[in-house]
């Protein structure tokens, strides 16, 4: 059983970020990390490898040259090899473009499971996995708190309105997992050393037989404006007063806003 984990490199959570003059995310001087939710996908894949269910774990990332660091970091956690798709024509890629490129790469890698995080920290659309599944015409099993593989079938445990379900589909599939799969492991020193010798290939659009024309430039969407959010009034504080007095003040505040 072959798993490919799609990981995205994103600016560190909570870091100070800006837009450039041409309305793209300014990534200069911001620490880059593996999208935190993708670490859970890595952890899920490695658990299946530890259990002997998965024979190989490959990492796939579309991003700039520096994104190879994210792949090395993933390889230090475990797994076998990695592919970076990088191409000048991909600057400013939106979710459709990303899906198109990942789908082409996955066609080439032909895994039983393409495993992804439930959302990327920066785009936050949770759209890439389902778009990839549709483009490749394979089933989508999303938002799993666990992924199980057996008998030519994949299953994810997914929260329902009142409890949880196991959703099943025949392989190959695209699957996404949540932060409930279990905390991602740390890379050991040995893992970091081993990662340096693991194969990491770099592919361009040409290697996927795609061109900028197939990608509608790099995006189907365009940002036309950025602005600061509406100014919020400063936080009001209630402190150093006994609870009943604080409660009366909160109730006044709620009444003024017609919330009670």
């Amino acid at each position: 059983m072959k798993i490919v984990v799609c990981i995205k490199q994103v600016p560190a959570t909570g870091a100070d970020k800006r837009y450039t003059a041409d309305l793209r995310l300014d990534r200069t001087g911001v620490e880059a990390i593996i999208n935190p939710l993708d670490e859970y996908a890595i952890e899920q894949a490695l658990r299946l490898a530890d259990a002997g269910t998965a024979d190989s774990v490959t990492y796939l990332c579309m991003g700039p040259d520096q994104a190879s660091e994210a792949l090395r970091r993933a390889l230090a956690m475990g797994g076998d090899d990695a592919v970076l798709i990088t191409d000048a024509a991909l600057a400013g890629a939106d979710e459709w473009t990303t899906a198109k490129v990942l789908a082409a790469a996955l066609d080439k890698l032909a895994p039983d499971v393409a495993l992804m995080g439930m959302a990327s920290d920066d785009a936050r659309g949770s759209l890439v996995p389902g778009a990839v599944a549709a483009m490749r015409d394979v089933p989508l099993l999303s938002y799993g708190s666990e992924l199980a593989l057996a008998d030519g079938e994949a299953r994810v445990r997914r929260l329902s309105a009142t409890g949880f379900d196991w959703i099943a589909a025949p392989l190959p599939v695209v699957a996404t997992v949540t932060d409930q799969v279990g905390e991602p492991r740390y890379a050991s020193l040995k893992g970091i050393m081993a990662a340096k010798r693991k194969p990491l290939e770099t592919w361009s659009l040409g290697d996927l037989e795609l061109s900028a024309d197939d990608l509608h430039g790099a995006a189907l969407t365009t940002v036309t404006d950025t602005r600061a959010p509406e100014e919020k009034p400063p936080t009001e504080r209630i402190e150093n007063v006994p609870a009943p007095e604080a409660a009366a003040k909160i109730a006044d505040w709620l009444e003024q806003r017609k919330l009670i």
Binding site: W96, S126, G130, A131, A133, A134, L220
Partner: peptide, 19 residues
């Protein structure tokens, strides 16, 4: 989650811009 899954399928099947 359900809405995003279906939206993603539309984006991927019909090559549509997503917002």
């Amino acid at each position: 989650p359900n809405g995003r899954d279906l939206a993603a399928a539309l984006v991927g099947s019909l090559d549509l811009p997503a917002f």
